[in-house]
């Protein structure tokens, strides 16, 4: 049964008693309302002056990156990792795909009421470079160009978090905060509904516009826990599949092929969109994928670490209206 624990205490204990080699969590970041990963190694955590130890660990709405992505760097080690509900699903997905043995992992579940999206925050403040910003009682107090603004935290949350139905991590060994209230999962995603209401031409225009913004920095791929191919199709040289020009067709090809690989695997954590420097609406297309998986196959990626992956399990009565 999942036990309640204090994040810093349990982290210090796991590192000290040799349960894990590495602990991956969060510490306050250096720019306003940001957090940075904190990676602690057993035996050396906090031993050098100026180097943070378990006491620096935090969890709150700033902790936006999906740390499961960093797990790939520590294959073969015993690792404790702090996960939000969505991150836990990504982790379950990797266990399903046999990337990690669940027994090598100590999962510190952080119930999460939503994380700040840089994009939503910039929209709320009409600035992406506040002089300072702090979070107090679900309100953001920011100073932009010398002028103080207060906006509710909810305005700065990732839109995906607002309708999140996986706030409490499912596969945690320890919970490092009290569970939070869930939302109803049965509602279809608003953004997807809205896109379906568009005409084909409008949808195409929107897609083209989003793709024209992409600069192919590959941040979406690099922060995605599900993107772990030894060699990405986009990096293959023979045959070279993906171009890198500013023709939106190259961005389209990259993202479409990536989404093909993420179908039934993306858990909707939104890390990619929060990492995107150009404000591409990646969530919309990820949500499309998740809606398809849900409505066509009754499948939620990462909901069950024991289940076979959607793409890996064939049933004779699988719907086939996507078959070409």
């Amino acid at each position: 049964m999942t036990e309640r624990a204090d994040l810093r205490t349990i982290a210090a204990k796991l590192l000290a008693d040799g349960t894990v080699d590495v602990l991956i969590g969060w510490q306050p970041g250096s720019s306003p309302l940001s957090a940075a990963p904190l990676i602690l190694h057993a035996g050396s955590a906090g031993s050098e002056p100026g180097q943070a130890g378990p006491e620096a660990l935090v969890f709150d709405a700033r902790c936006a990156m999906n740390l499961v992505n960093l797990l790939h760097k520590f294959k073969g080690k015993k690792v404790a990792i702090v996960v939000k509900g969505c991150d836990a699903r990504a982790l379950a997905g990797l266990v399903q795909e046999r990337q990690f043995d669940r027994n090598d992992l100590v999962v510190l579940g952080a119930p999460c009421a939503g994380v700040i999206s840089p994009r939503a925050l910039a929209r709320a403040l009409n600035s992406d470079s506040p002089d300072s910003a702090t979070l107090k009682n679900d309100r953001i107090h920011a100073v932009c160009g010398g002028v103080e603004t207060v906006v509710p935290l909810s305005d700065a949350l990732d839109p995906g978090c607002r309708r999140c139905a996986m706030r409490n991590p499912q596969i945690a060994d320890w919970l490092v905060a009290d569970p939070v209230a869930q939302t109803d999962a049965s509602e279809p995603a608003e953004n997807v509904e809205e896109a379906w209401r568009m005409t084909r031409a409008e949808r195409w225009r929107k897609f083209r516009q989003e793709m024209a913004r992409c600069i192919l920095c590959h941040a979406c791929r690099q922060v995605c826990p599900a993107c772990y191919c030894g060699e990405c199709f986009a990096d293959q040289s023979r045959p070279r599949l993906a171009g890198r020009t500013d023709d939106p067709a190259d961005a389209m090809f990259f993202h479409l092929l990536r989404w093909t690989h993420l179908a039934g695997r993306c858990t909707g954590c939104g890390a990619c969109e929060r990492a995107c420097p150009m404000g591409v609406d990646l969530r919309l297309y990820n949500d499309f994928l998740r809606e398809f998986a849900r409505t066509e196959y009754g499948y939620e990626a990462g909901a069950d670490a024991q289940a076979p992956p959607l793409i890996g399990g064939f049933k004779p009565d699988d719907p086939n209206r996507f078959t070409l």
């Binding site: 940075a36 990963p37 990676i39 180097q51 992505n69 960093l70 760097k73 600069i215 192919l216 920095c217 590959h218 941040a219 791929r221 690099q222 922060v223 990492a275 420097p277």
Partner: peptide, 16 residues
Amino acid sequence: SRIHEHCAGCGVCAFL
């Protein structure tokens, strides 16, 4: 060896 561990290896820094 310390500063690369949490680097995701994307091109945001270089492209901006």
